[in-house]
Design a binder for these strands. Structure first.
Lengths: 207, 207
DNA sequence: GAGATAATGAACGTGATCGTATAATTGAAC
DNA sequence: GTTCAATTATACGATCACGTTCATTATCTC
């Protein structure tokens, strides 16, 4: 409901908010919450420190806002579309590639690495991430497999467990390694391995 | 070569070194390098701050010593014994259980979480960890599978890739989830799933 | 141009922690 | 008991970053 009130003063510069969050994301997820410097964020986002404090009450609140935005973005990716064609293999490969494509982005890897560490001191942040990412992915993948069982594309099985197996086959050692290597994940390499992972999955679970 | 010199003064208390490293491990891997407090480490290990500085020149050096000790412990675990019996399945399960048993220890999980984050600013730490842990595990697992191929226990395949698949099947979603949850990994649950993971692996790769 | 709010820049108080210096104490070997 | 390094308690300087204050400037509506 628009009250019709039109302020007769200088409006808030909305672009600055995104600039602050972008800079904060990089700073927080590169140096960690404690080591992140508000002044660096201000400098990078080309905004005064006071402006940051005006919009985000504390450093904690700024961090929370960054995590929130990132989680929202992630939620949108982990939604498996319903299978339209009868080619279940192609459908799995497509979804696998979408997920790999998202997870291998440098800023997503930084996010994941850092949340794991920060969750040690802020369990609620870990929970937020789990709900937006891993748990959602598992739910969607499980649904996909239950659908496949119903359609006879794979054998009857514990679909939640099978979802984990499929995820594990796709990631293999690569995502594990990438978490600790400077170069990050090799997106091209992982993409190439998705069909093979799906084939192994179908060999283990297929009719 | 023992020079035979016997100092006639108070010797270094060797137990203190371990106490310091234990306290430092907890402090570093719970709060992160930057937020870790030397005074807290001193207090917990019941040692004076000066003693810490006498033995470890800087905070960095102390951190390096902790990482070093942890990596050495890890290296020892990731060595697959040669198959003695002809029961390849049992051999895989045994090794899988050993690995799971090690990886699910709370202090190992803290270690892993934190190294991932710290490697962002200290790539050499990530490399050290990779060599002691993941790469070693992959090498051993690959060797095991190559041996199995030679003995006809599984079909011919890219054994390094297969090693990743086996690892992925064993971990499934659980290790992924555990990195972000306060409760950590459910060792019992993971142990129970190892045989199933191995069976799925054999279904995909077996003769 | 007037009014009003957003944003800036610079300075400050506060608290934490690294790393050092110093004097005093401990304790094993002789 | 003497010797002498290991160890301790305490204090200190330096640095750094959060969060605040305040005067000034920019920018929008009327």
């Amino acid at each position: 409901m628009d009250t019709g009130k039109r302020p007769r003063h200088r409006p808030v510069d909305l672009a600055k908010r995104e600039a602050i969050l972008d800079a904060a994301r990089h700073e927080f997820f590169t140096h960690g919450f404690a080591s992140a410097s508000i002044e660096t964020i201000a400098s990078v986002s080309d905004v005064s420190k006071v402006t940051i404090y005006n919009r985000f009450k504390t450093k904690e609140a700024l961090f929370a806002a960054v995590v929130d935005r990132e989680c929202t973005m992630m939620s949108a990716v982990f939604i498996a579309p319903d299978a339209t064609s009868t080619d279940f293999r192609a459908h799995l490969i497509a979804f696998g590639e979408t997920v790999v494509d998202f997870l291998t982005q440098p800023h997503v890897m930084r996010f994941e690495r850092r949340i794991g560490a920060e969750a040690e001191q802020r369990p609620e942040v870990g929970e937020l991430f789990l709900d937006a990412g891993p748990r959602r992915l598992r739910r969607e993948l499980t649904r996909l497999l239950e659908d496949a069982v119903a359609k006879g594309a794979i054998r009857h099985c514990d679909c939640a467990l099978a979802a984990g197996h499929l995820y594990g086959l796709i990631c293999g050692f690569d995502m594990f390694f990438a978490r600790f290597s400077e170069s990050g994940a090799d997106k091209h390499q992982l993409q190439k391995q998705v069909p093979d992972a799906v084939d192994r999955f179908l060999a283990a679970y297929g009719v």
